[in-house]
Design a protein around this nucleic acid. Structure first.
Length: 469
RNA sequence: GCCCCCAUCGUCUAGCGGCCUAGGACACUGGCCUUUCAAGCCAGAAGCAGGGGUUCGAAUCCCCUUGGGGGCGCCA
């Protein structure tokens, strides 16, 4: 058996959808598992909707996902070009269309000059005169009699009656090929051996097989993957909120988390649900993919992501954190790596996304944090606040060794003063040094912040209480 | 309308004729822990769409019904 070659062939008409990412992932997984090749092909035959920006966005998203390709528009390869629009220019699709017409397996259709949707003539002859007169012409594939059969890795044996399929256009009047035709030409010329794609293409497959047969080409293996649905069981779309890879990236999902979740969605890898997809390549078995439409669950995605946030090396997480901050146009921390890693380590225990991590860690990295209104109203303005904070300032100033244990000691002795309940004292301190009422453990927070910052922040809070007195 | 695919807790799944009193995970509920919120740990509630067969025996095989989805473009 020759080299296994798979491809992902998006049309550049928008962002990369999570469904597309999952399709790409499964193709990539199989190519890598089989030590084959993975190819990226851009299907930009829809002149109206295709844009360069989309192509770039899709490539960026794919790269971010950790999916790499051996051949593609940006990296080249022996079977290029890898953009269909460029292949049109080389006359590739015309060439085979003419071959089909010569065999009388396809024909020209000439349309009415004024009513351009109205076919007036079908012919095998090159309609030179009509073209000169300005008629629109297309080329259609002539569906033969009989039945078309194929085997789908997931669905099993498939059989379609050709009589239920009508002749279909393969070359549009603008000279560009249609999807069902171009995909066959390209997959064959690019020596694609396995086609894994969305289930929405299942009914297109017999058309494509007929073209393979008409041209006398070998048919690749097919697998049609069930679609990703929204909570109402309709295909996941913008109506369900954001669905693009870029969106999940922007809200702080890690690429590892997204890939892990996407893999989980329809493929039960084994007992453990949390894994690095790269370490599961060898376990990938296409035929074990679920055969039914799967509902996308953002909550589980977040849970999976949280697991990854806590599992990866803190240094790696900090790297992701900085990249993400830049990607979303936020400030990035300026501090020592040692300090940053401490912050990340204590904060990541409580969050599932980089965005939540950003919020939680903000007062550790920046001094311009603001007090939560609830903190001001319920703690800072409380009668005991000034008293407790003055004592705290005194205790912390005199504290020599700054450790989690010693800050805990101070906090507990402050509570034992019985100026206010332990809970109130702790919450007051928490808000004083972070502005928030939800933070990592108070003692760790104080320790990480360091003596100097803690004292400064207590003084700042005190000045507020004095201004109200 | 025609063609096609699919069907286990709310969701993702394990199950491939007896190991099923249907297992796990998310979410949910309760408890533990506790300085907040999480995390973590423990416990609980929750499902084989319905009806016929086949079989000693069916979540598993077959048929029908119902339900969901896809396709039938000069979109991909």
């Amino acid at each position: 058996m020759g080299e296994v070659r798979l491809r992902f062939a998006p049309s550049p008409t928008g962002h990369l959808h999570v469904g597309g990412a999952r399709t790409a992932l499964f193709n990539w997984l199989y190519a890598r598992k089989m030590n084959g090749k993975f190819i990226l092909r851009i299907e930009d035959t829809d002149l109206q909707r295709s844009t360069k920006e989309s192509e770039k966005a899709i490539i960026d998203s794919l790269k971010w996902c950790g999916i790499d390709w051996d051949e593609g528009p940006d990296v080249g390869g022996d079977f290029g070009p890898y953009r269909q629009s460029e292949r049109v220019l080389k006359g590739i699709y015309d060439h085979y269309a003419r071959a089909l017409i010569e065999r009388q397996m396809a024909y020209y259709t000439i349309y009415d000059k004024t009513d351009i949707k109205k076919p007036v003539l079908n012919t095998y002859e090159y309609p030179k005169e009509y073209i000169q007169q300005g008629h629109q012409i297309t080329i259609s594939f002539k569906v033969p009699k009989g039945t078309t059969k194929f085997y789908d890795l997931l669905k099993g044996d498939m059989e379609f009656q050709n009589s239920t399929i009508e002749d279909f256009v393969i070359i549009k009047s603008d000279g560009f090929p249609t999807y069902n035709y171009a995909v066959v030409i390209d997959d064959h010329l690019m020596k694609i051996t396995h086609v894994f794609r969305g289930e929405d293409h299942l009914s297109n497959t017999p058309k494509q097989i007929m073209i393979y047969n008409a041209l006398g080409w070998e048919v690749p293996e097919f697998m049609h993957i069930p679609l990703i649905l929204g909570f109402d069981r309709t295909p996941l779309s913008k109506r369900h909120g954001a669905t693009s890879v870029e969106y999940f990236r922007s809200v702080g999902i890690l690429n590892k988390g997204l890939m892990n979740y996407l893999a989980l969605l329809g493929w039960s890898v084994g007992e453990e649900e949390i894994f690095d997809i790269k370490e599961r390549i060898k376990n990938f078995d296409p035929s074990s993919i679920s055969n039914k439409g799967v509902v996308f669950d953002p909550e589980k995605l977040e849970w999976v992501n949280g697991k990854h946030m806590r599992a990866i090396d803190p240094e790696k997480l900090f790297g992701e954190f900085v990249d993400w901050s830049r990607f979303t146009g936020r400030k990035t921390p300026e501090c020592s790596k040692e300090y940053a890693l401490r912050v990340i380590s204590i904060c990541r225990e409580k969050v599932n996304t980089l965005s939540a991590l950003y919020d939680l860690s903000y007062p550790f990295f920046f001094d311009d944090y603001v007090y939560e209104q609830k903190f001001i109203d319920e703690y800072l303005k409380a009668s005991y606040a000034k008293d407790v904070l003055e004592r705290a300032l005194d205790y912390f100033t005199r504290l020599q060794d700054w450790s989690v244990e010693s800050t805990e000691r101070v906090c507990r002795s402050l509570a034992q003063l019985e100026i206010a309940s332990k809970n109130k004292v702790f919450q007051l301190l928490r808000g004083t040094v972070t502005g928030k009422l939800v933070t990592p453990g108070l003692f760790e927070t104080l320790w990480v912040l360091g003596k100097q910052r803690v004292i400064l922040r207590i003084e700042k809070a005190l000045s507020y209480t004095r201004s109200w007195a």
